[in-house]
Amino acid sequence: MATDLHQARWKKGAWYAGLGALALLVLFPVYMTIVRALSQPRAYVQAGQPPWPVHPEWDVFTRAFTDGDLGRKFLVSAVVTVCIVGGQLITATLAAYAFTFLQFPFRRLLFFVFMATLMLPIEVTLIPNVQTIRSLGWLNSYPGLITPFLATAFGTFLLRQGFRGIPRDLLDASQLDGFGHLAFLRRVAIPVTRPVVASFGVIAFLTAWNQYTWPRAVVTEGRWETIQIGLRTVATQTIDRNNVGFAAALLAALPILLLLIFLQRQLVRGLTTGAVKG
């Protein structure tokens, strides 16, 4: 009995050791980036690039805003993200409602056409889409960064799944009470499916905030760079000031990190949709 207990304890310790090693593996790249961001660049290289900060400069994170114009990039990213998330929530909710609660000719065909856009990532349609944006005079502008993402097949699908869980009787009852479809959508359908809406909103935020290829294609002036595009210059910066760039990268991940900490349930549910049933 005593040896069993001893063995169990030893096993548990080994398990923690394994977990610790894996945590180190995951965190080491971030840790090294923090080290580099904090270190005085010249001194760090002269010290032989050790795995700890050299002459730490704690003001590097504020300098990212003053030297690196991070404030403007954050603003552009924030405006773009908020508009895309808001726009997608509206268009996807309306479309999902139509596909769930309304009868009309070609409904199935139209749903199929909507879902077909899932197979057309922006990378495929990049060249003609950039041309469209250019001919509209929308390079380096909010409309250029936002418009192509104002509709979403993924969101429509997700919300439709949510709406389908609402009993049909509820709609009939509300219509007997004299409510129209839009009132039912606003007062019943959306409140009832709030968890689905929240999951989708969180995923839409993450995707919009993190996107790279499209803004890289339609932005040619520094003023219109999103935070993600701004990070590209880090790699080409001189060694003397690249610590500012590393600090900027850490700050760019902060909004999503907060999302992960405070809305973990919604985020995880959104990410695992389709992967695990139920």
Partner: peptide, 29 residues
């Protein structure tokens, strides 16, 4: 805590991850 750490790279965009790997793999630094 471990689950939080393991899921933490979700917070990193492709661009952020690339910069982090500049720190690790850049031929000069």
């Amino acid at each position: 805590v471990f689950q939080m750490i393991f899921s933490s790279t979700i917070a990193s965009s492709v661009a952020v991850a690339s910069v982090i790997f500049v720190v690790l793999l850049n031929p000069q630094i």
